[in-house]
């Protein structure tokens, strides 16, 4: 028991370490440090009150949900079909979604890399740029990507282009912030040493900052590709084509067999991608 008391005392700042054995009012050894646990208890209480309080004033219809769950057999029976006959129709749509995800990730990574140079506080040419860019990108990141797609759709017409541009806009904001953080973590001693040798900014960036941030850059690429892929599946539902279109249409017209094939394609790809990036990360870690 004393093990726990020790850690709590150590982590509470260590200014006034807690004696190892403090008896509480029941005469037992006290094993919690109230100074340490109170903020968490307060937070959890507030969180509970906020969630349940908001839930109370909103007309959730859990009664109907429960009734439906009881009769879930009837609801699910028509869903239990699978129909591979139209897979040659589905695959091109899947390929389109995949293309949107790939292209938007690549373009946004390049644009994000460019902005990250001005956004990282240790290499920016002007100290007013980082906060301004950060504000702009925070705003863009807060808007769901389908909104951008629908707005670009108005001036570009249907097709893959608005989907790619829309997803690129919101994922550029993500990349710029992530890359800027990665650049800021580069050891300042290295930069000073290079500056001392008279290397200019561009040389420093390509020979010190980019190489040391490369592992992080690849990690963010894989993370954001997944986000963009999920984002691209949603786009079909709002009318920008791709696999989401097939899923929405098939569910809408009760051809569930078809919908499942499309869903399987999405899930299978996500799994395959996750496994292969895990292998890649392990290899990079093992070598680095």
């Amino acid at each position: 028991m004393t093990v726990r008391a020790k850690t709590a005392a150590d982590e509470s700042g260590g200014a006034a370490p807690m004696p190892l054995m403090v008896k509480n009012r029941h005469g037992k050894i006290r094993i919690h440090n109230p100074k340490y646990t109170r903020p968490f208890n307060v937070f959890l209480l507030l969180f509970t009150v906020l969630s349940l309080g908001l839930a109370y004033i909103i007309p959730y219809d859990f009664g109907r949900l429960l009734v439906r769950i009881v009769n879930i057999g009837d609801a699910i029976r028509p869903l239990l079909t699978i129909d591979f006959s139209e897979i040659d129709l589905i695959l091109p749509f899947f390929y389109q979604t995949l293309s949107v995800a790939v292209l938007s990730t690549i373009y946004s990574a390049l644009i994000g890399l460019f902005f990250a140079v001005f956004m990282a506080r240790n290499i920016t040419p002007n100290k007013f740029l980082p906060p301004i860019l950060a504000a702009i990108f925070t705003f863009i990141r807060a808007i769901p990507s389908f909104v951008f797609v629908l707005l670009v759709l108005v001036s570009l017409g249907f097709g893959s282009a608005p989907a790619i541009i829309g997803v690129t806009i919101s994922s550029t904001a993500f990349f710029a912030r992530a890359f800027a953080h990665a650049f800021e973590e580069v050891d300042s001693g290295t930069l000073e040493a290079l500056e001392a040798t008279g290397a200019n900014r561009i040389k420093i960036f390509f020979s010190a900052i980019l190489p040391s941030a490369l592992t992080m850059v690849i990690a963010w690429l894989t993370v954001n590709f997944e986000t963009n892929f999920h984002g691209a599946t949603i786009l079909g539902v709002v009318g920008a084509g791709g696999i989401g279109h097939i899923i929405a249409m098939a569910f809408g017209s009760n051809r569930f067999g078809r919908a499942w094939v499309a869903v399987f394609a999405v899930v299978l790809f996500t799994y395959a991608f996750e496994i292969s990036t895990n292998i890649l990360k392990r290899k990079l870690k093992g070598l680095g």
Binding site: D61, L65, R68, T233, V237, I247, F256, T270, Y271
Partner: peptide, 25 residues
């Protein structure tokens, strides 16, 4: 947990929409 995470929210939404209808619930 991995299945719940990797299937896009939107697909869960469609599946539930088929069984439970539309709305915040």
């Amino acid at each position: 947990a991995s299945l719940q995470r990797n299937v896009p929210t939107i697909i869960w939404l469609f599946i539930f929409r088929m069984t439970f209808g539309i709305g915040i619930t």
